[in-house]
Amino acid sequence: MTTETIELSDALGEPIELYRFSYGPGVGTILAYTDADFAITHDTITYQPVAGLDREPIVASQSLDRSDMEIEIDEQAEIAQLFLVYPPSDVVGLTIFRCHWDAEAGAITTPMAVWIGSILSCKRSGYLAALHGESVDTSLRRTGLRWHWQYMCPHVLYGPQCQADRNAHSITVGVTSVDPRTITVSGLIEDQYRGGVVSWQPLGLPLEQRTVLGIVQNAQAGTSTLTLAGAPRHLEPSESVELAKGCRHTLGDCRDIFANAPRYGGMPYIPLDNPHGTTRIYN
């Protein structure tokens, strides 16, 4: 029996929804849930039942494909725990499928995608976590950032416009201790790594990255304490991390540290004196 036949029937419909969260590359980073009371396998992915799974109703309107979505789920679910301490390093995508349970065949009908987007934030209320999702159409229609006439370089360090070689400006250091907002690593780390990125690869999980906000050297112990922008999740002492240099987004850093002056995106030669002002430029 097809999905269309069940949809048009008066009493055969038993709608089931499948929620596929994708976090990073690979099948191992897919979290799949269903609002049914039993596990369902579709496209080699097993969707597990979870308590409290619900969503806002889809409103039929001209902006249907651009509507945001709020999904409620048990706060102990893995997808909710992913947002518990610090937002994920990668975008969390969500696809909601809808199908029916065909009692005669003992299987689901062909699932159809009813909503596609990404999860932006998570808040908690009681024993539930509310995930706020934005549709993919909304993100595609959003106006991009404008390139202003400014001194500082607007490019993201190591990004597609910057194109600085991250591997050439990274070092690998060992972790000696881990705290909620800091990690201590072996060696005296230069101040140039302030504003850089520390990254590590947890076993079987996506890459974790944090911005380095501060560096405190301990010359006597031969270690450095790095203050991070978020909690170092899935990181243990004795493991190694990769530390990439930071950039002050000035022409000096771009030229002298990264040898990347031709791709500098700022305007370092903007005059400081207004020729139409009251200050005399020429005597």
Rank of each mutant, 00 (worst) to 15 (best):
T182H: 08
I189M: 08
D179S: 12
D179K: 07
N167A: 15
P202W: 06
A168C: 00
G187S: 05
S177N: 12
T172R: 15
S199Y: 02
G204W: 07
V178R: 07
G196K: 01
Q209P: 02
P206Y: 02
R194T: 12
T172P: 01
Q209R: 14
D179W: 02
I171Y: 09
R166K: 14
S170H: 09
S199D: 08
Q201P: 03
G204Y: 06
V175Y: 01
T172C: 11
T184S: 01
R194M: 13
E190T: 04
G195V: 09
I171E: 12
S199W: 03
L203N: 07
V178G: 13
L207H: 00
L207C: 00
W200L: 09
Q192E: 13
V198H: 07
D191H: 12
I183M: 11
A168F: 04
S177R: 07
G187L: 01
D191I: 05
P180G: 06
V175E: 00
E190D: 15
V175S: 01
D179E: 14
S199K: 04
Q209T: 08
L207D: 00
I171G: 05
R166W: 01
I183E: 09
V175T: 08
D179C: 03
G187E: 00
R166F: 00
I189V: 15
V198E: 08
T184Y: 04
T172N: 15
R166E: 15
Q201Y: 00
G187F: 02
Y193H: 11
G174P: 01
L205N: 01
V178I: 10
G195L: 10
S186V: 07
Q192G: 08
E190C: 00
G174R: 09
G196R: 02
G196N: 01
S199I: 05
G196V: 06
R194D: 00
G174C: 01
I171Q: 15
H169P: 04
D179M: 06
N167T: 13
V178M: 09
N167G: 12
R166M: 13
V198L: 11
W200T: 05
L207Y: 00
W200Y: 14
H169Y: 13
R194P: 05
T182W: 07
I171W: 10
D191C: 03
V198Y: 10
V173Q: 02
V173H: 03
D191Q: 14
W200M: 10
V185D: 09
V175W: 03
W200R: 04
D179R: 06
H169W: 10
P202V: 02
I171H: 08
G196S: 07
T172E: 14
L207A: 03
E208L: 05
V197M: 13
R181K: 14
E190N: 12
E190A: 12
A168Y: 07
N167F: 00
V175I: 13
I183T: 08
Y193V: 01
N167K: 09
G187Y: 02
A168L: 11
V178E: 08
